[in-house]
């Protein structure tokens, strides 16, 4: 019967389309891992079978890149940047929700308007500011502009709506100061929100490219993202080495994603509810 055949065809189409989408989404990851085992010439010839050049590629990578230093640079920027961003931006989000006033509501509204200011419009003045302040080629210059993140402020304000007011009232009756309430009650209670925000901010910091490209000038300061980009921008890139670099750049975030997957997605969603 038609009525039975139609759902079957539709189901086949849906599964077929989803399988294709899943394959296309995952393939570049497989390609990266396979590529790391092949020589550059084989990679650009589209070899999809694993090869035996993994150790050669790793050695060539190690000869061109001081890996421990680069990883340290990336980790430092990402960890310090994330910690400061979470502290400063969550304090602001907390205050906007907990201490409402007409003026602060208006201020919050103008922050939301500023959310659409593109970084491209800020990068030239920021570059000149950092040069004049003697901060070029420093991690301060990389981290400082992102610490007050309107997006994260907004995110924490939304999440704070679910923070039970009775907890704060009880703490006040017990004589806790406002900063103590924030530090000893709000932050522990909101741990899931902090976890989700950590993932978002850490990922953005770890993956950052344009601003570090402008600020960081010497090789000893460069992050993994910049290293991978410069490996691939040679006239004749050694793609075997590039693949090793891409794995190093991707792996930490992929691990975080798989370990904290539910938080990851919840975090992303919490910001729009």
């Amino acid at each position: 019967m038609m009525n039975q055949a139609l759902p079957l065809i539709r189901r086949t189409l849906v599964y077929g389309a989803l399988s294709l989408a899943a394959f296309l989404s995952v393939f570049p990851f497989l390609w990266m891992v396979i590529g790391a085992t092949n020589l550059s010439a084989d990679i650009t010839k589209g070899r999809v079978m694993p090869g035996s050049a993994l150790w050669t590629n790793i050695q060539n990578f190690a000869a061109q890149v001081d890996l421990p230093l680069v990883l340290w640079n990336s980790t430092w920027v990402a960890v310090v940047g994330t910690a400061l961003t979470l502290l400063v931006s969550s304090m602001a989000g907390y205050a906007f929700e907990m201490f409402q006033s007409k003026f602060r509501e208006r201020l919050f509204g103008s922050l939301l308007l500023m959310l659409s200011i593109p970084f491209a419009a800020l990068m030239i003045p920021l570059f000149v500011m950092m040069s004049k302040a003697g901060l070029m080629n420093s991690y301060t210059a990389i981290i400082a502009p992102g610490v007050a993140s309107i997006f994260i402020i907004f995110y924490f304000r939304q999440a704070t709506k679910a923070f039970p007011g009775e907890l704060r009232d009880a703490a006040r009756i017990d004589g806790l100061k406002e900063w103590q309430i924030f530090w000893y009650i709000y932050m522990p209670v909101m741990r899931p929100t902090y976890a989700a925000a950590t993932i978002i901010v850490f990922m953005a910091n770890w993956n950052a490219y344009l601003w570090p490209l402008i600020v960081l000038q010497t090789n000893d300061m460069k992050t993994i993202t910049l290293v991978v980009s410069s490996l691939a921008s040679a006239y004749v890139p050694d793609f075997g080495v590039v693949m090793v670099g891409a794995i190093v750049a991707t792996l930490p975030v992929v691990i975080v994603f798989f370990v904290l997957q539910r938080r990851f997605v919840e975090g992303l969603l919490g910001s729009v509810k």
Binding site: S25, P28, T225, A232, M243, T250, V254
Partner: peptide
């Protein structure tokens, strides 16, 4: 399916860019 389709957005823009550059070579995969 959801995890697979979501996975691309955990890669850094630079890392996936260099992967695409190699995949889309003239004699590439």
């Amino acid at each position: 399916f959801r995890t697979a389709i979501f996975l691309p957005c955990v890669t850094s823009l630079v890392a996936y860019s260099v992967l695409f550059k190699s995949m889309f070579a003239t004699d590439g995969v």
